[in-house]
Design a binder for these strands. Structure first.
Length: 472
DNA sequence: TGCTGGCAAACA
DNA sequence: TGTTTG
DNA sequence: ACAGCA
C-alpha cells in the first residue's frame, strides 16, 4: 500500500525512476511550499523518488531546519515506527546528491543530530505512556548542570518506572513506589493529565541541552568534555573538528570516525557474521576453544547496539592468553578499528557482591571491528547509496576461566531486569550471593560449582529458564 | 536536619 | 589527576 | 536541588 493517493496532482511519477531503494521526503517547514515543489521536481527529474507524505517507506528525510528540536517535535506527529532507521539529513546531502546526479553516501556532516531521548519522549507522549523517558531527560539535564544529587534521584525514578510490569495509568499505583518523591510525583501527574510536562519540554527546547546531548552522543565524550566545548563556543561537530587546539583522545577519535555506524543498530545477521569471524579466530588459536554469543542476541532479540561474546578454553589459566591472541589475530586481519584491553583482576576468594550488577573482573576487551558486507548473510543493513561495502560494529569479548563460564554466561545474557530479579531472589529467598563470577551459599558458607546455567538454576531451586524467556 | 548517592581500569 | 567507559 | 535515611 502506498502512502499517497495516485490521483493527486503531485503524485510521484513512476517513469524514469533510477534509485528504487531511496525514498526522499522533504520537510516543508522552514523550506517553504514553492521551494519544496521546486526541489521535488528537480529530484524527480534526476530519477529520485520523492514521497509527498512522511510514512514508513521513506528512507531519507531532508530538512532545511537544522536547529532541530522543532523538527523532531514535528516528525513525531506522524505515526512513523521506523524513525531510528531513517536518515534525517540537512539540505547539504540533498544538494550534494543533485550535483552528483545520484544519492551520495551519508556522512556525519549531513546528519541532523538531535538526541535519541527527544525521539523516545515524543513517541511515548503521543502513543501510550512510558514515563521513564521524561525522567531520563530530567536526569540528564541535571547532570549537564553538575547537580549529581538530583540527577541520581531522577535516574532512579526512571529505572523504577521502567521496571514496572504494567504501564502507569493513574497516580494511585505509583503512590507507594520507592524513589518517587514530591517533585517526581508532580511530573507524573502532569504527564498523566496533559500528556506532556512543561519542565521536560523546556529542557528539550533548550539549546545548551541539545548541544551537550549531541556532543555526549560521541563515544568517549562525557558531560565534562561536552561542557568544555560548549563553553568555548563550539556548537556542532564541524566546529569541534575544525578547532585546531582541541586534541581528541584515542576513544574520541574513533567515536567521531565511526559515529554513524556506532549509533546505528546492529542486526542479528550482522551479529552472526561477527560470530563467524571470532569463531574462526579463536579456533585457529585454540581448537577446543569455547565461544558463545551473549547479550540481547542470545535472548533472541533482532537488534542490539553492540555484540557480546564469551571466549574461553578448557585449559584453566590459558583463557587470558587466548584473548590477547584473538586481538592480535584480528589486528593482523586488518579489521581491528579500535581496541581497549582490560587484564583480569579476578580474585576467586572474594564473595559475590550484590551491591552492583554486571561488573566483573575477568579479562575483557572493548573493540570496534570492521565488518564486510560480503560476510553478512543477506548483506549489511545499510542505506542503498552507502557504497563503502562495510560498517563498523562495537564488539565486547570477555574471557573467564572455564570453571566460571556458566556464571559469566548467565550474567552477560541479561536482561538487566532479569539479572536484578535473579540476584535478589538468590539473596532474599535462598540466602545466596550470585554474580558474574560465582554463587555462594551463606548458610553453608561455601561456593557452589556450576558448569552450565542449568546447574546454577538447580542450586537456586529454580526451573531452568531459556534465554529468550529472560526479557522481562 | 544534614549527609549520601554502585565500582575499577585506562587514558592523556 | 580528572574523565570516561562498561 | 531529589529522595531516603539516621
Amino acid at each position: 500500500m502506498q502512502p499517497y493517493s495516485p490521483d493527486k496532482p503531485s503524485a510521484p511519477r513512476r517513469e524514469g525512476v533510477k534509485f528504487e531503494d531511496v525514498r526522499l521526503y522533504l520537510v516543508e517547514r522552514k523550506m517553504g511550499r514553492s521551494r519544496r515543489s521546486f526541489l521535488t521536481e528537480l529530484a524527480r527529474s534526476k530519477g529520485f523518488i520523492v514521497e509527498d507524505v512522511l510514512s514508513d517507506v521513506v528512507t531519507h528525510v531532508v530538512s532545511e531546519d537544522s536547529q532541530a528540536s522543532s523538527l523532531w517535535a514535528w516528525l513525531k506527529g506522524g505515526s512513523v515506527k521506523n524513525l531510528p532507521v531513517m536518515h534525517v539529513l540537512d539540505i547539504s546531502w540533498f544538494t550534494d546528491s543533485m550535483r552528483e546526479g545520484k544519492p551520495v553516501a551519508v556522512e556525519t556532516r549531513h546528519l541532523i543530530q538531535v538526541c535519541i531521548c527527544f525521539l523516545n519522549y515524543s513517541f511515548t507522549c503521543t502513543s501510550g505512556f512510558s514515563l521513564q523517558d521524561a525522567f531520563e531527560v530530567l536526569a540528564e539535564s541535571h547532570e549537564f548542570n553538575d547537580m549529581e544529587g538530583p540527577c541520581l534521584a531522577f535516574r532512579r525514578a526512571a529505572s523504577v518506572l521502567k521496571s514496572l510490569p504494567w504501564t502507569v495509568q493513574n497516580l494511585r499505583v505509583t503512590e507507594d513506589l520507592p524513589c518517587l518523591g514530591e517533585h517526581s510525583m508532580c511530573v507524573i501527574e502532569e504527564i498523566l493529565q496533559h500528556g506532556r510536562s512543561f519542565e521536560v519540554e523546556k529542557i528539550l527546547s533548550d539549546e545548551r541541552y541539545q548541544i551537550l546531548k549531541l556532543f555526549t552522543s560521541v563515544f568517549g565524550v562525557g558531560p565534562k568534555t561536552a561542557e568544555k566545548w560548549y563553553r568555548r563556543g563550539l556548537r556542532s561537530f564541524s566546529d569541534v573538528l575544525a578547532e585546531p587546539s582541541i586534541h581528541l583522545n584515542r576513544m574520541q577519535q574513533s567515536g567521531f570516525l565511526h559515529y554513524g555506524d556506532i549509533s546505528r543498530a546492529v542486526s542479528k545477521a550482522e551479529a552472526q557474521a561477527l560470530g563467524n569471524i571470532i569463531d574462526e579466530a579463536v579456533h585457529a588459536i585454540t581448537p577446543d576453544a569455547i565461544l558463545t554469543l551473549t547479550g540481547g542476541f542470545r535472548r533472541g532479540k533482532d537488534f542490539g547496539h553492540d555484540v557480546d561474546f564469551i571466549v574461553t578454553t578448557p585449559q584453566l589459566g590459558k583463557e587470558e592468553r587466548l584473548l590477547t591472541s584473538v586481538i592480535d589475530r584480528l589486528k593482523h586481519q586488518g579489521i581491528l578499528l579500535y581496541c581497549e584491553y582490560q587484564a583480569s583482576t579476578f580474585d576467586e576468594s572474594k564473595l559475590p557482591s550484590h551491591r552492583f550488577e554486571a561488573m566483573d573482573h575477568f579479562a575483557k576487551c572493548f573493540l570496534i571491528l570492521r565488518l564486510e558486507d560480503s560476510q553478512v548473510d543477506g548483506g549489511l543493513q545499510t542505506a542503498e547509496e552507502d557504497r563503502r561495502g562495510w560498517r563498523a560494529v562495537r564488539v565486547d569479548l570477555v574471557s573467564p576461566p572455564v570453571d566460571r563460564y556458566a556464571f559469566t554466561l548467565l550474567g552477560w545474557s541479561g536482561s538487566r531486569q532479569f539479572e536484578r530479579d535473579l540476584r535478589r531472589f538468590a539473596r532474599m529467598e535462598r540466602r545466596m550471593l550470585l554474580d558474574n563470577h560465582a554463587l555462594y551459599d551463606k548458610t553453608k558458607k561455601e561456593f557452589l560449582a556450576a558448569t552450565t546455567e542449568k546447574d546454577i538454576f538447580a542450586h537456586l531451586g529454580l526451573e531452568y529458564i531459556e534465554p529468550w524467556q529472560r526479557n522481562a
